[in-house]
């Protein structure tokens, strides 16, 4: 074997290893690698039982009920709804109709008991007037959709 051939063999070996690595990554990415479970997944019993996991979705409008420092609200992904209870201080960005990620366990009664609630902030930055305009537009759209039904 000349030096050139050896080098070629080494490079070939390297390329082979790298393509094997790529194949493995592609295989792994087929799996569901989510940070949180959606209410639909939880309702269809895909979420783990008896262990801590995260639930993510929107806080359903009008669902937040506070009693002292205890808070109850419902998380929705527009298809399914999961009730959540939490004791503690909520972050500023926690609002009805906004994203939320809660960590905790799912009880046998189907209620998610959160130990930690984090607001999932969206990437929109806008002044209050603009936000109000967007909300108004959304409401109008909803109304038209309802009348069309």
């Amino acid at each position: 074997m000349t030096i050139k051939q050896k080098r070629l063999a080494l490079i070939l070996g390297g390329v082979l290893l790298l393509s094997a690595a790529t194949a493995l990554v592609l295989f792994a990415l087929r799996d569901n690698l989510a940070f949180f479970y959606t209410p639909s997944q939880i309702v269809s019993k895909e979420a783990p039982v008896n262990r801590t996991f995260r639930i993510g979705g929107m806080v359903e409008a009008g669902s937040v009920k506070r009693t002292g420092i205890e808070v109850a609200f419902r998380v929705t992904d527009t298809a399914q709804i999961v009730p959540v209870t939490y004791t503690g201080i909520l972050p500023d960005l926690f609002k009805e109709g906004k994203g939320v990620v809660a960590q905790g366990t799912l009880g046998a009664d189907g209620v998610f008991r959160a130990k930690e609630v984090l607001a999932k902030h969206d990437e929109n930055y806008m002044p209050p007037e603009a936000q109000a305009a967007v909300d108004k537009a959304n409401q109008a759209r909803e109304r038209t959709q309802k009348t069309l039904k």
Binding site: D92, L93, K95, K98, Y125, Q131, A132
Partner: peptide, 11 residues
């Protein structure tokens, strides 16, 4: 720049 609708001044 105005105040942010959700974050207030912290933004």
């Amino acid at each position: 720049a105005p105040t942010d609708a959700t974050q207030g001044e912290v933004y």
